[in-house]
Amino acid sequence: MDRDASIEDLLGIMARLRDPRDGCPWDLKQTFASILPYTLEEAYEVAEAIEQSDMPALRDELGDLLLQVVFHSRMAEEGGHFDFHQVVRSICDKMIRRHPHVFDDQDLGSPEAVYASWERIKAGEREAKSSAVETGALAGVAQALPALIRAEKLQRRAARVGFDWDSVDGVLDKVAEELDECRETLADDLPFSERVHEVGDLLFSCVNLARHLGVDAEQALRAANHRFESRFAKVESGLAEQGLEPGVEVRDEMERLWERAKKDPQ
């Protein structure tokens, strides 16, 4: 294209790909369910580009994520449910509704007041569209969220109605308690399901600790994964320089290289 592309260009491309007569066989075969894994993958690739401060990659990954929105919208239009423009209208209405301090000249005074207003409006929206089954402070937290993110959202919802620790000290004590209970599951006479239960409680408590420390648990674990990958790559490189490969028989050398890798700047 000689001119700057527009969203209408992308919508046209997707319509062509989904054309029953001349479209792409792969694209025509897809459903909401089959595309979902790609949608999630693209969202995580956006996150990775941001974490790496890679702006060219972020540009490309945002495009891939936008394609997912267009793809789902096209399939919904074909089914007579809604189209892309209605998706845009919906989010525009939502953003205006949730920012009365900007669009209705309400004076909220502080970021904290803005956040409180945002949460009140969201709660009202959830209540308006909830079924009789979906009631209560925890209603509407998506089941498909990654477990760490969902745990934090559930905890924040409970905290808004007063069900929370008064200080981080209580959370630290709870983490220690759950760790002790995990140790107890090592006893031979306990079923494995009890171990799964206690490990889950420990992880949930760790998410609570992260929340009280102002840390995003999902991002913290992603960063820890990156550090582990980087350090282990240095261990493998150090072994290769000695003509060795990772294995139990070189455990001591792996530990030495690991400690050295930990001291290197990340």
Rank of each mutant, 00 (worst) to 15 (best):
A159L: 08
V207E: 00
L203V: 12
A43K: 05
M254A: 06
E253Q: 14
G136T: 02
E51L: 00
S130K: 03
Q155P: 05
S167Y: 11
R18L: 15
A210P: 02
L67F: 10
E194H: 00
I121P: 11
E51N: 02
I7G: 11
P111A: 03
R21F: 11
Q219D: 14
A144Q: 12
H72F: 12
E181R: 03
K174I: 03
M254C: 11
I13Y: 13
R157Q: 14
L244H: 11
L239H: 08
V199P: 01
R183D: 12
V235M: 04
A132T: 03
G23K: 05
R222W: 12
L36V: 10
L11T: 00
S73A: 14
I13F: 03
S110L: 11
V102A: 14
F71S: 02
Y38A: 08
Q30P: 04
S130V: 07
Q155L: 12
L108H: 13
W118Y: 15
L186A: 02
A128K: 12
W26F: 13
G136N: 08
R18M: 14
H226F: 02
R97K: 15
V248K: 14
V102I: 14
Q143C: 10
F32T: 10
I13W: 11
D19S: 03
R227N: 06
A224W: 09
L66R: 03
E259Y: 12
P265V: 05
R211K: 05
Q219W: 11
K122Y: 15
T135W: 02
D54K: 00
P25V: 09
G136I: 02
F204P: 00
H197M: 00
T39Q: 07
E127Y: 07
E112N: 08
A147D: 15
V235W: 11
S167T: 15
E259S: 08
I7L: 15
E229P: 01
F84P: 01
A132S: 06
V87A: 02
D188E: 06
R21M: 10
E112S: 07
E134H: 08
R150D: 09
L36C: 06
Q52C: 02
G124N: 12
E177F: 07
E127F: 04
H99Y: 12
